[in-house]
């Protein structure tokens, strides 16, 4: 992370609520918003205050020695600081902010909201930083008529929907004397899957077959035939030999698959507290997906037929994430 002094810049300590009321932010509508001048705030940085001190020293010196050139220097630097406000301000306003859909994460991980900064005019934007809760999370230059990506990283403590919180887009360019920033509220939310239960976990009922299967080793299952490769097929079932021969990828199927089909059911974990139950199911899904076994999920009111692959995997986890919210 670049060690810019400004990253330590703290706003007055107001309660979040009061801040929200006083300091209007930019709310993205349908995923994007433009930073308008009314929403852009500007204050001197610590370096800016130091610079003011320097000007005061020069000015007092100029008075003391009645030195016209020292006056000119002090006034010129003061004027430069004044003009730099405009440049800093201009660096930020008119910037288009769009939110893209974030990748789901497991609870306890960090959610990453992709943020696209787009300079619409013919001007390049320089050193635009993203600050969340006083911490600088990224900084980038946006060339004219181009877009650049930054990420808002937020802890995702629990499963369910995680809405992006207010963050600031800021810049201290060009002189570092002033910091312009705008609060941005993204209308984006991230799905947070339950955290998979850690440690040794009892196998799911019917999972014994799976266990047997894995104990016996991969090759022991009865080979059934080949079918066309579908996205998400586990790599170890791909007929690599035919791929190597330049044929279109094919996936081996096994007779054992039907019998090792796994149902992960709510009633198996009902006895646990709800969140732990979801955690357990989550772990089972993660394990089954890793093993490449088809698995189905039954939750009250939801039934996902056994299958496998990323789409199915995420559908299951999403059901868990949003279960009974």
């Amino acid at each position: 992370m670049p060690n810019l002094a400004s990253s330590r810049f703290k706003l007055p300590r107001l309660s979040q609520d009061l801040q929200r009321r006083l300091l209007r932010g930019v709310r993205t509508q349908q995923g994007h918003a433009v930073l308008r001048y009314r929403r852009v705030y500007i204050l001197p940085t610590r370096n800016g205050l130091m610079f003011a001190g320097l000007l005061a020293v020069l000015w007092v010196g100029a008075i003391n020695y009645n030195n016209s050139l020292a006056f000119i220097l002090a006034f010129l630097l003061g004027a430069v600081a004044m003009v730099s406000i405009l440049h800093t301000f201009r660096n930020l306003i008119g910037l288009k902010v769009s939110a893209a859909t974030p990748e789901p994460v497991f609870a306890g991980d960090e959610a990453r909201f992709p943020i696209l900064l787009e300079s619409r005019g013919s001007r390049a934007r320089t050193a635009i930083g993203l600050q969340y809760q006083g911490e600088m999370q990224g900084i980038t230059d946006v060339p004219a008529t181009h877009a650049q990506r930054l990420e808002l990283r937020m802890p995702a403590p629990q499963r369910g929907w995680l809405s992006a919180e207010r963050f600031a887009l800021f810049t201290i360019y060009p002189l570092g004397l002033f910091k312009a920033w705008s609060w941005v509220d993204l209308d984006a939310r991230c799905v947070v899957y339950p955290a998979p239960e850690q440690g040794a976990v009892p196998a799911p009922p019917g999972g014994a077959a799976a266990e047997r299967g894995t104990q016996r080793g991969r090759g022991a299952e009865d080979f059934d035939g080949l079918r066309a490769y579908r996205t998400g097929d586990p790599p170890r079932h791909i007929a690599w030999r035919s791929v190597a021969r330049g044929l279109p990828p094919q996936t081996k199927t096994f007779t054992g698959e039907a019998s090792s089909r796994l149902w992960l059911e709510w009633r198996n974990v009902e006895a646990l507290p709800r969140e732990r139950a979801l955690s357990r199911l989550c772990r089972w899904i993660v394990d089954a997906e890793a093993e490449g076994r088809p698995y189905g999920l039954r939750l009250p009111g939801i039934e996902l037929a056994p299958a496998q692959g990323p789409a199915h995997y995420h559908r299951c986890l999403r059901s868990l994430a949003l279960f009974a919210l």
Partner: peptide, 28 residues
């Protein structure tokens, strides 16, 4: 010193710096 990436070209700094000084002169 305030370029985040340090990718800027010297002539760009020179131009911007010149613009700042020129714009500041009337105020000064």
């Amino acid at each position: 010193a305030h370029r985040a990436t340090g990718h800027g070209k010297p002539w760009q700094y020179a131009r911007l710096s010149g613009a700042l000084v020129l714009q500041a002169i009337p105020v000064a």
